[in-house]
Amino acid sequence: MRIVLAGGGTGGHIYPALAVAKEMRRQEPQATFLYIGTTKGLEARLVPREGIPFEAVEIAGLKRKLTVENLRTAWKFVRAVRRSAELLREFRPDVVIGTGGYVCGPVVYAASRLGIPTVIHEQNVVPGLTNKFLARVVDRIAVSFEESLAHFPRKKTVFTGNPCATEVMHGRAEAGRQALGIPDGRRIVLIVGGSRGAKAINEAALQLLPMMGDEPDTHFVYVTGEVHFEEISSRLQSEASLPPNVTLLPYVHNMPDLLAATHVIVNRAGASTLAELTALGVPAVLIPSPYVTNNHQEKNARGLEKAGAAIVILERELTGESLRRALAPLLRDTARWSAMRERSLTLGKPDAAASICRLLREAGKT
């Protein structure tokens, strides 16, 4: 099977596409792929590492009000559609899947105009502008959250979950503990703000961790983000306030292994992150980013909160003390932790990547 993947900008759009490719390769080792993105997004760096051929088109996002810049964007879209069509004619895919980001617009639209079967995947509860536009022309739509079904034509929309959930199921808890030298008897609280870190979470963690030395059965793994690591490390060391039960890291390369060993996580509420947590049943304290389009992270997080799988703290309410209060019942009340874990697991879709692969095959046969 020949598949074109399109998605770009942030990891939340790129990692689901790569997860689909990995699952398809497991099922069909002979499958071939082409990834179409932009040179400015993370995809230009991440995709070639996976051994997937990469091509770029130039595109920008529309502003939500009438501006001169939108006229330039419209012209870029036309040119990107032409370039996408050239790449598609050359590669001759059986199906094209878009996983979000502005680049999906011209690629998936060009495929639909050429009569190539098309699929889009929406990671968030509320769809963005690109997927709203593409929903009218694609053959099938996959969504990560059941609540998203109301935003798309019901007959061609399927609740599959997020394919990142499948990837995380390959993690090994023992390997995660061994990599950090954490004994089996210790619970792990993972504090992370995404691959680049989050200033608000870092500041709250700086206030929290000096208070956590009296939790001897708990080990805190605090991932600062690479750009924040030196500053945070320096501040903690200068204040002599880093307890022995804390491991400070700039980045985690074996995240599936570490998540498999995690007792509680403190994190943002990106769709891929929530897919991973619910697949594993990890109780969470979520601090949604207020800087994203349509405030979609809070909507994502509230769904888990309503189901009893997470505690939500808005960034404007986040302090070391509010974080300590949220963590306390999850560390000291076994029944509360177990209930949250069970509720989280009911939301998980660990077979999401396989479901999307089936959808691609079905679309490719139409």
Rank of each mutant, 00 (worst) to 15 (best):
5 L>W: 08
13 H>T: 02
14 I>F: 01
18 L>H: 09
21 A>V: 09
21 A>W: 06
24 M>H: 00
25 R>K: 15
26 R>G: 04
30 Q>S: 14
34 L>H: 08
39 T>G: 01
41 G>T: 03
44 A>Y: 07
44 A>Q: 11
46 L>H: 01
46 L>E: 13
51 G>W: 10
60 A>H: 15
68 V>Y: 10
69 E>G: 11
77 F>N: 08
77 F>Y: 14
78 V>D: 04
80 A>G: 10
86 E>H: 12
94 D>K: 13
97 I>Q: 07
100 G>D: 09
108 V>P: 05
110 A>S: 13
117 P>L: 09
127 P>V: 09
137 V>M: 01
139 D>V: 02
148 S>E: 08
148 S>T: 15
153 P>G: 05
154 R>H: 11
156 K>M: 05
157 T>G: 10
158 V>Q: 12
159 F>I: 04
159 F>Q: 02
161 G>V: 12
167 E>C: 00
167 E>R: 07
173 A>P: 04
174 E>M: 14
174 E>R: 15
174 E>V: 14
178 Q>E: 15
183 P>R: 07
185 G>Q: 04
195 S>V: 04
195 S>L: 08
197 G>Q: 12
201 I>H: 05
201 I>P: 09
203 E>V: 12
207 Q>W: 03
210 P>F: 13
211 M>V: 09
214 D>K: 14
226 E>Q: 14
230 E>R: 13
236 L>C: 09
239 E>L: 15
239 E>Y: 02
247 T>I: 13
248 L>M: 11
252 V>A: 07
253 H>G: 12
255 M>W: 13
258 L>A: 05
258 L>F: 15
262 T>P: 03
262 T>H: 03
270 G>E: 10
270 G>F: 12
271 A>D: 03
274 L>S: 12
276 E>I: 07
287 I>V: 15
293 T>H: 02
305 E>I: 00
306 K>P: 01
307 A>L: 12
308 G>A: 05
312 V>K: 03
318 L>C: 07
330 L>A: 10
335 A>E: 14
336 R>A: 15
344 S>N: 04
349 K>C: 01
351 D>Y: 02
351 D>P: 02
355 S>H: 09
356 I>V: 08
357 C>Q: 04
